[in-house]
Amino acid sequence: MGPYHAVVVHFPIALLTTATLVIALRAFSDGALARSTDRALVPLLALGVLSGAAAFAIGLMVWPLEAIFSSPLGRNHILAAAWTLAYWALLLATRWIQGPAVWDGFTRWVMLGLAILGGLLLAITGALGGHLMGTPTAASEGLRLLGWEIYTTYYVPDTTLALIAAAVLVLLALGWWGRRARAAV
């Protein structure tokens, strides 16, 4: 399935990279072009996430799961792909739910920040995939310089997992409070 993964993965890369540019344009501009491209943002994100999910599924069939789960580079690619997919799904949901109001005031900068982070995740996933297939780029060296030796698996210790669990609870509580506050208005 390797060649098919290589073909399909072009779609989320192209669509989500375009989405990043659209978000950047809209964050900095209220002009006609920015508003026009923003109208295509939800379809762009939806297609990007769907094609990303397809690429993820096909990617899991390139090698036996036992093999890819035993490879540090393979594990890293899967982790980055899973997080990237979830992250862009979050952006899709946000733009869909919030509508054009997401560009009002300060939240446009929130969207820009989230898009930049999503673009980085996408780039890391793609770079790791390319490295896994035998075509490393300078991105791998860049990650090393930032403190991640990509030949070692990205995992966090139990204490960090506990911190993540606590953060999840706090975020859920904040969200629950926000919903109640809105309902009360």
Partner: peptide, 12 residues
């Protein structure tokens, strides 16, 4: 969880 909080706290 972040997505849930973000959308609950942003103006719909």
């Amino acid at each position: 969880a972040f997505g849930f909080a973000l959308n609950a706290l942003l103006r719909r």
